[in-house]
């Protein structure tokens, strides 16, 4: 999923303070799972903002709504008839949802309420970690199912670097070296010989480097 984290309330206040009627728009997908922008977080943020502006002596209408998805036109259409009631939308979706909402409601300012962090998984309640950087050309088949691009601080394809110590990355003793994990996994798969295969120079044109990407699937197009 896309993992996001809450923005500090001070930053959100700064974004919306000059408006009078705002809609806080949650998303029922990834940001709900990572507890940053679902229905619950929309409610908590709305209450906090109401109290803040009340104390400031400012009258502000703050409404709450959570859509099934903000990265899908169909669900964004659900607020079509009420959008004009607000002079700004505060989206708690990931950066995709914020942008897609802004595209659909072109004359309304749309502000982000979360920081979009990475593609990751829930390791335990309250702990999410990165697993993928969407490079567009998956290498997991040759790295024992562990991604060195997202999990090595230097995205080394022929690792580990000389900074790995006791299985930990040089940037933090709390971060396991991705290449340590790869070697352990190759060992358990009885494939340690694969370690010596040189990973060729990577084509990064499918990555961010190649410019904004798109996937076109004629077989599923209507």
């Amino acid at each position: 999923m896309i993992v996001a984290d809450k923005k500090p309330i001070e930053e959100i206040i700064e974004e919306v303070k000059d408006h009078d009627k705002i809609l806080i728009l949650g998303c029922n997908e990834c940001v709900t799972v990572c507890e940053a922008g679902g229905k619950k977080e929309v409610g908590v943020l709305a209450s906090a903002l109401r109290i803040y502006f009340l104390n400031q002596g400012k009258e502000m209408k703050i409404d709450e709504r959570t859509l099934e998805r903000q990265c899908d036109q169909e669900y964004l259409d659900e607020i079509r008839d009420v959008a004009d009631d607000y002079d700004a939308i505060l989206s708690l979706a990931c950066g995709v949802g914020v942008q897609f909402t802004a595209e659909q409601y072109f004359s309304r300012p749309v502000y982000p309420g979360v920081n979009t962090c990475f593609l990751g998984a829930t390791e335990e309640r309250g702990l999410w970690t990165e697993r993928c950087q969407a490079c567009g050309q998956c290498v997991l088949a040759s790295t024992g199912g562990i991604c060195p691009i997202s999990r090595c601080a230097k995205r080394i394809l022929n690792g580990p670097c000389g900074g790995s110590s006791n299985g930990k990355c040089e940037i933090s003793k709390e971060l396991t070296c991705a290449w340590h994990l790869i070697v352990e996994r190759l060992k358990s798969l009885d494939r340690l010989d694969d370690y010596e295969k040189l990973f060729p120079i990577k084509d990064w044109s499918t990555d961010r480097a190649g410019g904004p990407r798109k996937v076109v699937r004629e077989d599923v197009q209507l």
């Binding site: 006791n166 299985g167 070296c177 070697v183 340690l192 010596e196």
Partner: peptide, 10 residues
Amino acid sequence: ADPFEIRVPR
């Protein structure tokens, strides 16, 4: 550096 067993393969 660790792991030692890949130091020579490396």
